[in-house]
Simulated scan of single mutants.
Amino acid sequence: MIKNLNYIDETVFLKEKSLFFKESWILVAHKNELANNNDFVTLEYFGNKIFIQNYNGTLKSFQNVCLHRFNTIHEEPYGNRVSSCLYHNWTYGKKGNVIGLMCRNSFEKDNISALRLKEYEIDYCGDFVFIKLNDQLDRSLNDYLGNVFASLAEISRHFGAKTIDYTIEHKVNWKLLVENVLECYHCTSVHENSFAKMGFGSVAPEKFDFFEAHSWCEFPKGDDVKPNKIIEKSLADRTFKTQGYLHFYSYPNAFISSVEGKGFYFGFMFPESPSKTNLRVRYFAPKFEKELSESQQNIIDFINNSSNESLDLVLNEDKKIVENIQTNLEHFKDSSPIFGDEEFRILKFYDYFNKKELNDI
């Protein structure tokens, strides 16, 4: 048993929000999303609007709010254009400074040249892009991720092109999403037509590692599942191959996973309230050792579409369960959940998180 966990109280949620900002580093993008000049990715984290953009090969991150009349600069979750507010065309450069605006002479008295968008520090774990929310935190990204850094960096180098990017609203507390993804104890029952058919959930994991609240785990594949020869042949030249389902949790907000290196899922949590969490879903094709022919690419596109459909099925199966749990919590707010040995990553997570709550809040 662990201490009682409150999933519904507004005061508890606000304390957790404060703790997240003290933790500071969050995983926001993969370099493949920002490969070209003017590529950008946006996010809104606990009300803070932020964008990351490629400025002629240099990635920078700024507050996504124009300094003129406070309109949002980039409205879309991702895209490619200059960082220009579409209200009055105020345009910003890689230092966050105003480099273009209409009727500049009319603003001379306001010292426009001294204005700067709030900037967030960027660092990298392989090809993953992190930003630091709290500029007072004196802790490097490498130190923040600890011994999980190397494994996370390795898998990041095998991401191909992004195939999907959308957001699903979950009417649940953020902790329920974390609990759900940190175990495969539910896979054979909830994911009977997806993970279970692929052979996952019936064999206990033997490979895993932890650092503070971060963790990774490889869930082995059962021996009784026959491989699809067409898919195996088509994906034979992918650069990353593993026999199992590999899953990373980067505290506090990100989930990275891959089934046998055949594609890569990147989930990003946006806690909105005690009972609402948005999940941004991104999926990436695998990277290949050599350039594909047109016919090979057509097959890979078909496999990617099938993977996207399977991912959507899994996510909605989980969503149904965790939303059902949330509706019951009002009647169990003074009770603790029970976690067994199969849910060891959840126990490790709460061991860290509960200590941080006591020490930092």
Rank of each mutant, 00 (worst) to 15 (best):
G96Q: 07
I52Q: 06
Y78H: 11
S106L: 08
M102V: 12
C85V: 05
W90R: 03
H88A: 01
N105E: 13
P77E: 01
V82N: 08
N54A: 06
R104W: 04
L67C: 05
F107P: 10
Q63M: 09
N71F: 07
N89F: 13
L86N: 15
R104Y: 06
P77Y: 00
V98Y: 02
N89R: 12
R81A: 07
H88N: 12
T72V: 13
N97G: 09
Y78F: 14
K95F: 08
H88R: 03
I73W: 08
N71G: 11
H68Y: 05
V98M: 05
N89I: 05
R81E: 14
N80I: 10
L67K: 14
G100P: 10
L59R: 01
V82I: 15
Y55A: 07
F62K: 05
E75I: 12
L101I: 09
M102W: 08
G57N: 06
P77M: 07
N97A: 13
G96K: 07
N80L: 02
V98I: 13
S84G: 00
H74Y: 15
K95G: 14
N80P: 00
Y55L: 08
C103I: 12
V98E: 01
T72M: 02
N105K: 15
H74Q: 10
M102I: 14
G57D: 05
E76N: 11
L86W: 02
N97R: 12
N56D: 15
H68A: 02
